[in-house]
Amino acid sequence: MELSTTRHGDMAIATVIATRIDAAAAIAFKDAVRAAVADGPDHVVLDLRQVTFVDSSGLGAIVAAMKGMGAGRRLDLAGLTPDVAKVFRLTRMDKVFVIHDDPDRLIARATG
Score class of each variant (00 low, 15 high):
27 I>Q: 15
72 G>Q: 08
14 A>M: 12
23 A>V: 10
40 G>N: 12
26 A>Q: 13
65 A>H: 06
60 G>H: 09
46 L>M: 09
25 A>S: 15
27 I>V: 15
54 V>A: 03
18 A>D: 15
82 P>G: 08
46 L>S: 02
67 K>I: 10
44 V>K: 03
39 D>R: 14
84 V>E: 05
47 D>T: 11
80 L>I: 07
26 A>H: 08
27 I>W: 02
13 I>F: 04
83 D>H: 11
9 G>P: 09
49 R>I: 10
10 D>V: 08
28 A>H: 08
56 S>C: 05
82 P>C: 09
60 G>R: 07
59 L>D: 08
68 G>K: 07
26 A>V: 05
77 L>H: 06
20 R>N: 09
67 K>M: 14
60 G>C: 11
77 L>S: 04
23 A>G: 06
17 I>H: 07
78 A>V: 14
36 A>C: 11
82 P>D: 06
57 S>E: 01
50 Q>E: 15
67 K>C: 04
23 A>M: 02
37 V>P: 02
57 S>G: 04
74 R>K: 05
60 G>W: 07
44 V>C: 11
57 S>D: 06
40 G>H: 11
25 A>L: 12
80 L>F: 03
56 S>D: 00
24 A>H: 13
55 D>A: 01
79 G>D: 10
64 A>R: 05
20 R>W: 02
83 D>R: 14
75 L>G: 02
49 R>T: 15
62 I>F: 02
20 R>Y: 03
21 I>T: 12
84 V>C: 09
29 F>P: 12
80 L>G: 03
80 L>P: 00
11 M>F: 06
24 A>Q: 14
18 A>R: 06
50 Q>L: 13
74 R>D: 01
52 T>F: 02
50 Q>W: 08
19 T>Q: 15
43 H>A: 11
55 D>S: 12
34 R>E: 11
71 A>R: 07
53 F>D: 01
61 A>G: 00
37 V>F: 02
79 G>K: 12
51 V>T: 09
78 A>H: 13
78 A>Q: 14
67 K>N: 15
11 M>D: 12
69 M>E: 13
55 D>K: 05
32 A>C: 12
75 L>H: 00
37 V>W: 08
16 V>T: 13
27 I>K: 13
